[in-house]
Amino acid sequence: MTAHVYELSHLQALEAEAIHITREVAAEFERPVLLFSGGKDSVVMLHLAAKAFWPARIPFPVMHVDTGHNFPEVLEFRDRTVERLGVRLVVASVEDSIAQGRVRERPDGVRNPLQTVTLLDAISAGGYDAVFGGARRDEEKARAKERVFSFRDEFGQWDPKNQRPELWSLYNGRHHRGEHIRVFPLSNWTELDIWQYLAAENIELPSIYFAHQREVFRRDNMWLAVSPFTSPREGEEVATLTVRYRTVGDVPVTGAVESTAASYDEVIAETAATRLTERGATRADDRLSEAAMEDRKREVYF
């Protein structure tokens, strides 16, 4: 921080804004929870929460909506991180929702769309009134429209045509019982900001974000990992490639990108030069239709 110039760099400004939002939630809500998947955005969000309350502990639990289709490296990282920070982890399991008959497994085995039911059930079971999400507005055109404090009705629905005005840094978190607020402290961050911040703060990530060798096969124009949840169909050939992940999600629909970037600096250089959005490059579920994300957000998606 350059004293006497009294200016913040863009990363410092984004950090200050996110910390402000996080503290507002802790002060004004009774039962906040932070969605933590082990993905890079949620890692940054959790890191910012730790900074916001330092030297005290984070005053709310974190929740992982677990599809059961995880990268083992990510699960291991998740458990280690919550342990280190001394926060309570709530796991909301899609497998449990299936076992309880709340949702039915899809014929294609993809569980991303099923998460919504699991998430809403967990929110109501925990009585959570504020749910932190790591979504960024640069990710997708419907997200580009969403408020920092995003009101959800009793069915968890978002009404994009009737959002609350949100002025200055005054966030209105009013809601009735059964309704809740989704809070997005990273709204104004871009993918590049996230990487620059991870590097500047030297924050650990699951190893799959960096280049590694992996058995993959081509489907829907993406490299999918060979895993207990996904195997090649006839005609889909397996290759061993040097890849990394740009996002971490449900294994069957998260694509890897070919890359040799093994360090923060190399990933930053690659991110600055990339010609594809992170979702365009790595998420099959967003390609379903033009308004796929808007439709899922209207329901209860993150």
Partner: peptide
């Protein structure tokens, strides 16, 4: 269309809510 991302916006050809771009 880069900022008019909502279905209703595209149907009506107008902007309804703020889009943030970076």
């Amino acid at each position: 269309l880069l900022t008019d991302g909502l279905r209703a916006e595209r149907e009506q050809g107008i902007t309804i809510d703020v889009a943030y771009r970076y």
